[in-house]
């Protein structure tokens, strides 16, 4: 079984977000980059497939050389090899086209991505990859079992869960539930050493258009300071919610 795990290289969850160059660029200074948390759940689930079902795990990122430490970390966690498509990820369509091209070449049984990247929050790359390949797509996936040419998947739906059986190859976009937080692995020394010599292939991008352009960034307006209400006069809160905020 061959599994491709898509890794998005994103600012750490505690990062303060700033913009630069007249708010036309995201300011990377002082930012620590990590494996997108949703991808880490998927990667860990893939490692289980490797350990228990002999799967071969390839991780892929579309990005410039600065994303290599993130790919090396995925290798240290246990992926067998890595591919970096050497290009600035200019929009979801472009990124999906690159991954789909690699997937076609590699003949993967399963492609695992994340529900969304925590930077651009697009929720679109894995679905586009699936459609470009013409294979099943499951979003917000919280359960995955692979058995021969089929997978049993559980996905979140509004107010509940849906379990279904799909045939492989397929693309899933995962999140917590695929594995739990306590299952996530911190690379050990041996893993880090091995990762240095595992293959990391750098590939030139295929020709692809882009369909969206980020023209301007903006920070949320800062909140006016909180209005405190005396706990012994809670009717005042009800009045404010009704008359001032107009939400009840």
């Amino acid at each position: 079984m061959k599994v491709l795990v898509c890794i998005s290289h994103v600012p750490d969850t505690t990062s303060k977000i700033n913009f630069t160059n007249n708010n036309t660029e995201f300011d990377k200074s002082g930012i620590t980059f990590i494996i997108n948390p949703y991808d880490e759940f998927g990667l860990t689930r893939a490692i289980w497939l490797q350990e228990k079902q002999g799967a071969h795990i390839t991780v892929i990122n579309v990005g410039t050389s600065e994303t290599e430490p993130t790919l090396r970390k995925a290798l240290a966690i246990g992926a067998n090899d890595a591919i970096r498509i050497d290009a600035e990820p200019t929009d979801a369509w472009f990124v999906a086209s690159q991954i789909a091209a690699q997937a076609k070449e590699g003949g993967y049984d399963l492609i695992i991505g994340g529900r969304e990247s925590i930077d651009y929050n697009g929720s679109q790359v894995p679905g586009m990859v699936a459609a470009m390949l013409g294979v099943p797509f499951v979003n917000a996936c919280v359960g995955l079992e692979v058995d021969g040419g089929k997978a049993t998947v559980i996905r979140e739906i509004d107010g509940g869960k849906e379990k279904s059986i799909i045939s492989l190859p397929a693309v899933i976009a995962g999140q917590k539930g695929l594995v739990e937080e306590s299952d996530l692995r911190i690379p050990n020394m041996r893993g880090i050493m091995q990762a240095r010599t595992k293959p990391l292939k750098v590939v030139a991008p295929v020709e692809s258009e882009r369909k969206t352009k980020a023209v301007l960034f903006e920070k949320p307006a800062s909140k006016a300071s909180v209005k405190l209400v005396d706990p012994d006069n809670i009717e005042e809160l009800v009045r404010l919610l009704h008359e001032e905020a107009k939400v009840i």
Partner: peptide, 10 residues
């Protein structure tokens, strides 16, 4: 950016 920013897309 997980509610920490907005982007205008063209």
């Amino acid at each position: 950016f997980s509610n920490k920013g907005f982007v205008y897309y063209e």
